[in-house]
Design a protein around this nucleic acid. Structure first.
Length: 649
RNA sequence: GGCCCCGUAGCUCAGUGGAUAGAGCAUCUGCCUUCUAAGCAGAGGGUCCCUGGUUCGAAUCCAGGCGGGGUCACCA
């Protein structure tokens, strides 16, 4: 029997003979979860007891709160309507019926209208033996569907920062989660490698670079390019300041300043206009863009060189973060796409043309606005390109689902994009999803590149690893290991701290990133979870391989579980559900919270009960098997978040 | 102003129709001659933004406010 799909098969194992014939009536399949077994039994029981047919939803068991005895709880208040009895009475009758008819249920108790059901220990131990040696427990088999996930998608004029890190971690863990849920995943990004921004870096390097290179200056190559972008901004600001006090500048000020506007505020607002209409540097940059669009050979050489430096630098950061992509889409290739879609849309009446030649989509009946999809001069806008790339990607991969990991400032854009694709009748339109996430703030406020308050990705990674090094040195646990092994462990710990700190927050929420907290190693953190794994590995090493694997001598039917053991097993049982939920909602924080809960349950178990010196040999074997299963799930679960587990720490 | 997102302990966050709302950090108290104390146990700390509504039952759903953020370009 294959348990990889997360549905368990205890029927066949423990024998489904006499008591539960009712299941055969309602469910043909044998691999139901305990939740489903209880659910169907409740439906049957209510039918038999009160002659009422209830929905599966009304019969859904919830996890019993820990202050009461029991594993699952049925709320009987909704049944009073037809049962004509008090909730407590219904619970008693229902409980008796369920325990009589469901073999996996051992006993029940009633508190108010809450029916608490106790699942037999043998159910849990059976489950444990089924999954103990399955390192892939929780992962589901291929479901034949494909999903494409777009994430990161940087500009090529400056290095990656904290905002990209959140995006990358979300996108990467979503990819891993979808894969675990049975999808074939294609990870892609679209790189904004063209436009005025990269021209600024190019121009600055050409004018003031003196032929320097990343190699000659010993600078990481994407930072090298970013430095010239900053240099351009500096030179431009100097030029602008001089202009502001010039005769021309003052004349413009007098002419255009609104009465309520202060002088410096006016010049701040006027900056873009100055760049486009007055600035000599701006003129040069725009000329460079025109040269690029014309395919001027010298400009192309420079452009390729600058971008290559950036890609080399990005590559190093991706590697440090442990992420990779299946395909890169470059805007220099795609920025002209979408015109054929516009033609199609015009023909089918989804779009209409205004007198000036511009093409529009009227989405007002979908509570969206009118949206231009082609300028009057026939050139594409941002959304035209997205229309084109969506189609291109579908042709490339045939993915039923496409997920865009993009910050929430673009919510409206994606609403419009998806609505248009729907109206165009694209076959993949129903599978489009914008994984929108909140911006990352610092305790000091918003990140602003112009004010130099941006947290650089490479700096951040280096910092968390250094912090792990300091903390480790105090503990001294790693001192005797080879330096290479130590470095590997410290890298895993530091990155776990950083990644978990970001992923544990639900995507939708704007988050405050405190660098001090991101390097915390205690409490609700990545290293806390790694530590549970390390403790297990240490015990298993001491127990020896023979005891750790196979060789289970204990009798499943007779063993009595301690509460800490049962809690751990029940937690393991929820893992497949956590993966499905995370995949369906595109929400990695679901997995992060699951892993933390499991690690917490393990630490409690580890503190309260002795493994190697258990009271009986049977208990020892069961606990070792439990340890192994917890280690597998922690490793798989954290792996879904892109977090590696060390063997020692 | 229209639309969208967020509002839960001092701070960072879980919880989205069920029982007395939970973790971590910070503060305080215990627990290492016993499997790694990056751990465990306990204490204090709450107007779940406000007001109304639906429901046997609301932090959760609905309406209206308040506060914060985003967005409303022939920019990307």
């Amino acid at each position: 029997m294959d348990v990889r799909d997360g549905k368990l098969t205890h029927f066949t194992k423990v024998g489904r003979a006499t008591k539960n014939a009712i299941f055969a009536l309602h469910f043909k399949k044998v691999n139901m979860t305990i939740n489903e077994i209880i659910q169907s039994a409740v439906i049957t029981a209510i039918q038999e007891l009160y002659g009422e047919t209830i929905t599966p939803e009304q019969a859904t068991p919830t996890v019993t709160r820990k202050e009461f005895e029991g594993d699952f709880t049925i709320v009987t208040f909704p049944f009073t309507r037809f049962a004509k009895k008090k909730p407590g009475e219904i619970a008693e009758e229902l409980g008796a019926h369920l325990v009589k008819n469901v073999q996996q249920l051992d006993r029940f108790n009633v508190v108010q209208g809450f029916l608490n059901l106790v699942v037999a220990d043998s159910f849990w131990t059976n489950f444990l033996t089924e999954i103990a040696d399955n390192e892939d427990f929780g992962k589901q088999p291929n479901n034949g569907q494909k999903v494409m996930i777009e994430f990161c998608s940087p500009n090529t004029n400056k290095p990656l920062h904290l905002g990209h890190v959140r995006n990358i971690l979300l996108g990467w863990s979503c990819s891993q989660i979808c894969e675990a849920a049975g999808y074939e995943v294609k990870k892609v990004q679209v790189i904004n490698d063209r436009g005025i921004a990269i021209c600024k870096s190019m121009l600055a390097w050409q004018k003031w670079g003196e032929g320097k290179t990343p190699e000659s200056t010993g600078t990481k190559s994407d930072h090298f390019v970013g430095d010239y972008y900053v240099l351009f901004e500096q030179k431009f600001q100097e030029e602008y300041k001089v202009w502001q006090i010039s005769t021309t500048g003052q004349a413009i000020l007098d002419e255009k300043r609104k009465p309520e506007q202060a002088d410096d505020q006016f010049f701040k607002d006027f900056k873009n206009t100055y760049f486009n209409e007055y600035s000599p540097l701006g003129k040069e940059a725009r000329e460079m863009l025109l040269n690029w669009e014309a395919g001027d050979p010298d400009t192309m050489v420079l452009w390729r060189q600058m971008n290559q430096w950036v890609y080399d630098g990005f590559g190093a950061t991706y590697q440090a973060l442990g992420v990779s992509f299946d395909k890169y889409y470059y805007e220099s290739d795609t920025y002209l796409l979408g015109k054929d879609i516009v033609e199609q849309g015009l023909a089918s009446g989804v779009f209409y043309k205004k007198e000036d030649g511009s093409v529009w989509a009227d989405l007002t009946d979908a509570k969206l606005d009118q949206k231009v999809v082609m300028r009057s001069d026939g050139t594409s806008v941002y959304i035209t390109q997205d229309l084109g790339t969506a189609q291109m990607r579908y042709e490339d991969f045939g993915t039923e689902k496409m997920v865009y990991v993009v910050a929430d400032e673009q919510n409206y854009h994606f609403q419009v994009l998806f609505e248009i694709l729907k109206r165009l009748g694209e076959p993949y339109a129903a599978g489009l999803h914008h994984l929108s996430y909140g911006m990352v703030d610092l305790p000091s406020g918003k990140m602003k590149s112009r004010e130099g308050t941006v947290v650089d990705a490479d700096d951040l990674i280096a910092e968390v690893i250094e912090e792990a090094r300091t903390a480790s040195a105090e503990r001294g646990e790693l001192a005797e290991l080879p330096k290479e092994t130590q470095d590997d462990i410290l890298r895993k710990i530091g990155l776990a701290a950083l990644k978990f700190h970001i992923i544990k927050v639900g995507p939708q929420k704007r988050m405050v990133f405190d660098p001090k907290e991101s390097v915390d190693l205690q409490g609700q953190t990545g290293p806390h979870i790694q530590y549970a794994y390390v403790r297990i590995k240490s015990v298993l090493r001491k127990a020896g391989e023979k005891l750790a694997k196979g060789n289970r001598q204990y009798s499943i039917e007779s063993i009595e579980l301690e509460p800490q053991e049962k809690e751990l097993i029940a937690q393991l049982y929820r893992f497949p559900v956590a993966i499905s939920t995370a995949a369906n909602n595109y929400d990695p924080s679901e997995i992060a919270n699951y892993c933390y809960d499991l690690a917490k349950a393990f630490h409690r178990f580890f503190t309260d009960l002795s493994i190697l010196k258990a009271e009986t040999e049977e208990a020892k074997l069961l606990r070792l098997e439990l340890c192994g299963a917890v280690a597998n799930v922690l490793k798989t679960g954290m792996g879904l978040l892109g977090i590696e587990m060390p063997e020692r720490m």
